[in-house]
């Protein structure tokens, strides 16, 4: 197959397919099956190892996710921060640390699910596919941090423009085609995960509660008043 077509497929067509599926299906699922939006907690069935798997994973993944978002939306802040080598080291090392935390948590999650019969009962085939994808995503991410250092800088300077070219409907893949294979793998997998997102338990990220901290403690509903 033509190499440039292959690149076009992986870095243009696939991202658009994924993003399209993501937006369409999350909205559709929320409207048609809002009952299915749940974190599907399994703490009730197994409470001993739960903490040691779910908590490190979430602290790790949240920091890493926010890091990615900052690099996408305010890349200059990262470049500015990294202009000083010491600060660059600090950022790189903490990113790696949180990446490892995510990895440890995720491995914990998978082991816990695989070894507890009760939890296996509430684990669907979709869950296993998702865990495999996340595992590959996190492993490739950590490997990149080790093999291709200063990711925070080259993400902000090379990948952010690529992502924006996609968002602006004017795709320009010159930035990505020259990247090492590992990075390409990570990008493709990330888009696949985004497309798969609405069909998985990950939708719980979209319903994180926010008015809670401000609302009055008691909630009362009256007939005839729309909630």
């Amino acid at each position: 197959m033509d190499k440039s077509f292959f690149d076009q497929f992986l870095f243009v067509i696939l991202p658009y397919l994924s993003l399209f599926t993501f937006f369409l299906m999350t909205v559709y699922r929320y409207r048609a099956q809002s009952f299915s939006y749940s974190s599907l907690s399994s703490q009730f069935l197994e409470n001993e190892h739960h903490f040691w798997a779910v908590v490190p994973f979430h602290y790790g993944v949240l920091v890493i996710t926010v890091g990615h978002l900052v690099a996408i939306f305010i890349p200059r802040s990262i470049l500015l921060w990294n202009s000083h080598p010491l600060r660059l080291y600090i950022l790189e090392i903490s990113a790696l640390a949180f990446g490892l935390l995510t990895l440890i948590g995720l491995v914990g999650i998978v082991i816990r699910r695989a070894t507890t019969t009760r939890i296996r009962k509430v684990t669907s085939p979709t869950d296993w596919i998702l865990f495999a994808m996340l595992l590959a995503l996190v492993v490739s991410g950590v490997a990149m941090a080790l093999l291709h250092p200063w990711g925070s800088s080259w993400f902000a300077s090379n990948l952010t423009p690529y992502l924006w070219s996609i968002f602006k409907l004017n795709p320009d893949i010159t930035y990505v085609t020259s990247m090492p294979a590992l990075v390409k793998f990570h990008i493709v997998l990330a888009f696949l995960t985004v497309g798969f997102f609405p069909f998985t338990r990950l939708v719980h990220i979209l319903v994180i509660p926010n008015p809670y901290l401000w609302r009055k403690p008691q909630v009362v509903r009256w007939y005839g008043k729309k909630q």
Partner: peptide, 18 residues
């Protein structure tokens, strides 16, 4: 003064007014 209602982060629990 139910704590169950007050604790729900999603505001899913409620007391029927009537």
């Amino acid at each position: 003064n139910p704590t169950c209602v007050a604790s729900c982060p999603s505001g899913a629990l409620y007391k029927r007014g009537e």
